[in-house]
Write a protein that binds this DNA or RNA. Structure first.
Lengths: 156, 156
DNA sequence: CAGAGTGTTCAGAAATGTCTGAACGCTCTT
DNA sequence: AAGAGCGTTCAGACATTTCTGAACACTCTG
């Protein structure tokens, strides 16, 4: 068997799995697959190739890419003399991913804190329980924060 | 205004928000709402009351509860002389939640590692990129692991 | 300037996820 | 035994998310 063919099968399998993982994490499956493709390839991949190799319409690629760009996970490259857009993993994709998760836990904590503030004085017991819940999100946030430097690409 | 009414409004608002948070985290909205209700109430809540106060069928409560029990977030209580089941937050609900998230990141890492193992020798560059991806999940896993003791309820 | 190629948008189709109502097995009461 | 009340299951209704195809604006080429 060709080593190229083998790599192709492996890549497709990898992409499929990452799609599932993405959708478990509350993210569109397709965005996970685009991300996986870029991880696997390393080199810049053209917009049109993404659609072709993932067997999906250009419209879908467009919206998937918008999400990934918004989160700072990929970057768009404009090659001079080529009308197509190319894409590549962002420099600090993993740090960006962690920061995004962190923003989520912070937001959750803020929602709880907001409820706590509105509680009447008498509801001491409710307050204590909500504070425990908020502490949980706080601990997770702290953990993610600690992780950021560890996932950040060391400067070369 | 009655302080009880105010609490009721606050509770409903809290429950609604936690439903949204749950669904953002890739978990059924209803499970998040049941969880929120139990956090807010503190005391045991009857199966029937959950359905009534969340305006949802008993079937829905049954499946929501199954999920929460499987994840170790709540516990079921059988009161002698009462045919209804009651529910309460599990002792270490937040630790269980963290462990569940940890299991997810570990699984993701394992999927990547599995692909890495199958890579042919020649594909050094692909290997390096997948390893970076796996390291990311590894760092997050480590961070969550560190968080477990911090979210665990201190023994009284 | 006409034509081909690009990425984006959006209404609607398709797929997926979630909720319900009815049927069921169980236990307790009468 | 019969009946009432409980939690579970599952097919189907419903709602939401995700994908597509067509229309569009833009740019480059001939």
């Amino acid at each position: 068997m060709e080593t190229t063919e083998k790599l192709d099968r492996l890549r497709d399998d990898f992409i499929a799995r990452m799609g599932v993982i993405a959708s478990n994490d509350g993210m569109p499956r397709m965005s996970g697959q685009v991300f996986a493709m870029l991880v696997f390839e390393g080199e810049e991949v053209a917009f049109g190739d993404l659609a072709k190799r993932l067997s999906v319409s250009r419209a879908t690629i467009s919206t998937s890419i918008r999400l990934l760009e918004e989160r700072g996970l990929i970057r768009r490259i404009n090659k001079a003399g080529d009308r197509q857009d190319y894409f590549q993993l962002a420099d600090d994709a993993y740090a960006a991913m962690t920061k995004f998760a962190l923003a989520g836990t912070r937001r959750s904590q803020a929602e709880i804190d907001d409820t706590i503030e509105k509680l009447p004085e008498e509801a001491q017991d409710v307050r204590a329980r909500l504070e425990a819940f908020a502490s949980f999100y706080n601990a997770i946030s702290a953990a993610l924060e600690d992780a950021i430097p560890r996932v950040t690409k060391p400067k070369t």
